[in-house]
């Protein structure tokens, strides 16, 4: 017998039954194919405006900084100011995704924009977040052809552009969207990252320190472009 068979047999023996039968399987499959949320906290729920406000509040509590913008054209200026304030180099590594390529970077010639995945030497990374979760101020990033995962972790400074309309109230809402955006049975991308603040540790004498392996700072460009 393979270990697989032995382990399954031992589990069934402990449960005092053989393999599950048709009805039991059907009930489980129903649960797996139509996932229903358990309790959802009230925090985070509300209209688009409330969601954006809760998101900003929660993200700030987790040591993120949030810049509220009304138009794409404000991004280069806002980013330049942020990098200057934090004494960061003006070279940014940008995810090769259409909405970031459409930003009028020329308006800030000081910014050096390179598209692609993060390299060891990159100090600043910019992604376009797939979404956010208001309840905990969490950024959601999905890996894909234009969205490398390393960009979320390697650079010292992690900047995410987030459209306020993409902020879900809670994780369950975000999962429904992941499912519905893919029309496939296997809808998960290779990696789904939930990012809630900069990298941190308390492993040395329980003292909280930021930036141990991942980014030392997280900046969110929250774009409310309902009007545009």
């Amino acid at each position: 017998m393979s270990s697989r068979e032995i382990m399954l047999a031992k589990i069934r023996n402990s449960l005092g039954r053989g393999p599950l039968g048709g009805d039991a399987i059907q009930a489980i499959e129903k649960r797996l194919k139509n996932p229903t949320p358990n309790t959802i906290p009230a925090r985070g729920q509300g209209g688009a405006k409330e969601r954006a406000a809760t998101f900003s509040k929660m993200a700030s509590q987790c040591d993120c900084t949030v810049d509220l913008l009304n138009d794409v054209s404000e991004i280069p200026g806002a980013l330049k100011t942020y990098l200057e304030t934090n004494n960061q180099p003006m070279a940014i590594r940008v995810a090769p995704v259409a909405d970031l390529q459409d930003i009028p970077w020329d308006e800030e010639p000081a910014l050096v924009v390179n598209y692609g995945n993060a390299e060891e030497t990159d100090h600043v990374g910019l992604i376009s977040a797939w979404g956010g979760v208001a309840e905990s101020g969490t950024i959601v990033a999905l890996s894909g052809p234009q969205n490398p995962t390393a960009l979320n972790f390697l650079p010292d400074t992690f900047v995410a552009l987030l459209y306020s309309k993409k902020i879900a109230s809670n994780y369950e809402e975000a999962w429904s969207r992941v499912r519905s955006e893919s029309n496939q049975d296997n809808f998960m991308p290779r990696t789904v990252n939930w990012i809630t603040g900069p990298s941190r540790t308390a492993d040395i004498e329980q003292t909280l320190l930021l930036g141990v392996h991942g980014p030392r700072r997280v900046h969110i460009l929250l774009l409310d472009n309902e009007k545009s």
Partner: peptide
């Protein structure tokens, strides 16, 4: 334990890198 709403990084991994993925 740490009193955080979530730990900083929660990551769901599904299979190896896809054909058109940049990394993984």
């Amino acid at each position: 334990i740490t009193g955080q709403d979530l730990s900083v990084y929660t990551t769901f991994s599904t299979g190896p890198r896809r054909d058109d993925d940049i990394d993984g």
